[in-house]
Design a protein around this nucleic acid. Structure first.
Lengths: 344, 344
DNA sequence: CAGCATTTTGCACGCGCGTGCAACGTAGTG
DNA sequence: CACTACGTTGCACGCGCGTGCAAAATGCTG
């Protein structure tokens, strides 16, 4: 940190070259990994750069190198805590590897054409999509323009698109197993009408596991979206049905929390006494004392890490085939499925 | 959507010019707002561009125009739902105005020097900081490099930095008033040791309003951070004190939820029967039935909108003075401060 | 048709940087 | 010392695009 000379313009490599008494090439090479510069010139250049406060202009570098190291991050529903975590991990991971995250926000119902356009305008080196909107349009565009693409928790689009997801099948199965172990033999499902691919897989796996274990599924009650409100809606439908299974399986935590609250406060049912509840995701709220929800954890850090690794491998070698990646999940057993509820 | 000719290279303006039979300048002008092109050439150019699938290379444009239209978004704690909402609104608002959000994630304790470096490497046109880390380092760097900067919910740094915050003083006062109206005359504060500037303002305003209204403050119980866990910690300290005020004021919602859960499930206190609770932020969870928390809403959309407007004004006219902006807040009265609790 | 005002167009340069190529310097060997 | 091999250096070109300037084309008026 030596003294920095203030100048009107932001300094360029030419300024540095002049001050250091070398050519512009030498400056460029000093700041390029793997380029060949003698220790003496490097020293001179670094000193001059320090004095001027020089920084490589990444835009110019991208232009000349024909690669931007920009990664498009297509994200929806950022106020969901899992999304927030995921985006955080993705962005931090990318920055650590000298890639730059370019945020492209979308919400269900938005026109994604605009976002695709923007990615292409910037020649992104790759993209990661973790939105709830069907990504086929994005996938097609990326494939057509040779932009390496990772889909997180989305449908397995074939071809050159990389898929990274939580192990939804295992998650669904674990949900059934934990309910079975808690003694449940009949169960209601709470789900959502506009189901995403992951959610669909969970449900299918849960249903299959129930069949294996001999758990009867008495009905599937749905809310509009995967939301607290959606859970309330599902609970209303469930209560209206008059059915009385041992348990309810909610396809995700937000839904479960709304479901729980509604059956508790409106129908005055006891969980886990009158009904056991299991769900999937393990958002922070699931662990709060008011809910204490048994659920299956998906790990945003692991997912982000795998997505980044896969993407960068694909960038480095576009022809490398990358099979779908499934990130392991873990059961988090809490009070909502406790076997002997109010026995004390 | 006519047929697009596949070519190995991504097409450049020169390709379009050749196909359209005009000069490259004409192509450039066609895609530049406010440039002068005759309808005929524009038509020819558009047709050729459509055929080739041409898009302006924004990096090259940024380089030549000397402005990138990139906005650095420095964000921490993205898994907090308010942060997520704010980032979403910011990113969408920026994209709508033809600026591009550049995500720079940070977490408390991180070295922000790296992020600053990145912003300068990319010549961002401006920056918005909404992190919980003290932003003075970022502020200094931005001022030194003439990067317009907006701080959201941060300390009012003087000089050329723009401040946009919720009206913390009003929020604190409203918290006191709603408790007073509910009949409370003594109150405990639950807060956090590593308090941010906004939190500090809330607390100060709350304290001042209590003095005005004649509410006694019996103590300030603190958790480590503004978190559910922090709230639990504060509740433990509160319970250990043996004090029995009418109410508790929590400096934010996450804290309040942990506080609530702990005093309910560990000390078996009734809210609002034994203790009324008010807080600040109005995160989604505050409205959930298990909590039904009275709180003061800050509006992420309004904050984002104001931040963007202010930033762009400053970009367009760097010398325009922009006084600190305070976004109005609104009381959301729910059950946790209900006057006649278990009277029925 | 001539003469003028007004667009429209193309040329050429610059934005800041990476890199192949040839010239240069240096060290090492016989 | 002569010769070779190799690491350094500088030149010049290219990355894709915007834009001032002067030439060309157009429209308008008399």
């Amino acid at each position: 940190m030596s003294k920095i000379v203030k100048t009107g313009r932001t300094p360029t490599s030419e300024d540095v070259a002049r001050l250091a008494g070398v050519s512009r090439s030498a400056v460029s090479r000093t700041f390029t990994d793997g380029a060949s510069v003698s220790p003496k010139t490097r020293e001179k250049v670094m000193r001059a750069a320090d004095v001027l406060g020089y920084r490589v202009n990444f835009l110019a570098r991208s232009l000349s190198q024909q690669r931007t190291r920009l990664i498009g991050l297509v994200v929806s529903d950022m106020d969901h805590s899992l999304r927030g975590s995921l985006v955080d991990r993705l962005a931090r991971g990318l920055v650590a590897l000298d890639y730059r995250p370019f945020l492209l926000p979308t919400n269900p119902g938005d026109d994604v054409g605009h976002l695709i356009d923007m990615m292409l305008h910037y020649n992104v080196s790759g993209a990661i999509v973790t939105s709830d909107t069907p990504p086929s349009q994005i996938a097609d565009a990326c494939v057509a323009h040779d932009v390496p693409l990772v889909l997180v928790n989305k449908a397995e689009v074939g071809g050159k698109v990389i898929n990274v997801s939580m192990d939804s099948r295992k998650a669904g199965r674990m949900g059934a197993e934990v309910l079975y172990d808690a003694g449940c033999r009949s169960v209601a499902i709470a789900s959502q009408r506009r189901a995403s691919h992951t959610i669909g897989l969970r449900k299918k796996a849960f249903t299959a596991a129930c069949a294996d274990l001999g758990i009867e599924i008495v009905g599937d009650f749905q809310g509009a979206i995967q939301d607290y409100a959606g859970g309330v809606e599902a609970a209303e439908a469930f209560l209206a049905s008059g059915l009385a299974p041992d348990a309810a399986y909610c396809v995700n935590d937000y839904l479960a929390l709304g479901f729980l609250d509604h059956i508790r406060y409106t129908a005055h049912m006891d969980v886990p006494g009158d009904l056991k509840v299991a769900a999937c995701d393990d958002i922070a709220e699931a662990g709060w004392q008011s809910y204490d929800l048994t659920t299956v954890r998906q790990d945003p850090s692991a997912i982000a890490g795998a997505a980044i690794t896969a993407l960068i491998n694909r960038i480095d070698d576009p022809d490398l085939p990358v099979p779908p990646i499934f990130i392991d999940v873990a059961l988090v057993e809490r009070n909502s499925t406790r076997a002997a509820p109010s026995s004390l």
